[in-house]
């Protein structure tokens, strides 16, 4: 499933979309950056409430297909700009991480 299709199916807010055709191969949910760094796999959609700028480096290093911020986590201009600069698909939803994981999981 592509990021574009996930945006539509899950009614996600687009913060930055650099590559909507990117395929979502799997998913990972978690907020501890080192844990995510060690466990999430290439191409995964990452669902998290963590919205500091360091999430961009994690997504970039792991080649994640997108980050989905849950529970309308606050987005700074710095985060938005960094996502644009590093070509990271950054999305947001009012749903919590469980709901997003459940709904995305059904679609993959």
């Amino acid at each position: 499933m592509t990021v574009n299709k996930a945006i539509e199916a899950l009614s996600l807010e687009v913060v930055n979309l650099s590559d909507g055709d990117r395929n979502i191969q799997s998913g990972y949910s978690g907020d501890l950056l080192s844990w995510v760094m060690a466990r999430a796999t290439n191409g995964s959609a990452w669902i998290t409430i963590m919205s500091n700028v360091n999430i961009i480096a994690v997504a970039s290093l792991l080649d994640l297909s997108c980050i989905i911020l849950s529970e309308n986590a606050e987005i700074s201009e710095e985060l938005r700009n960094l996502a644009i600069q590093k070509n990271i698909n950054l999305l947001r939803s009012e749903k919590n991480s469980f709901q997003l994981s459940f709904e995305l999981g059904k679609l993959l």
Partner: peptide, 16 residues
Amino acid sequence: SLGFGAGMGLPNMKRY
């Protein structure tokens, strides 16, 4: 609070 400090840093470095 930034999502670090889980005590995974050095173990991850060794593991990988």
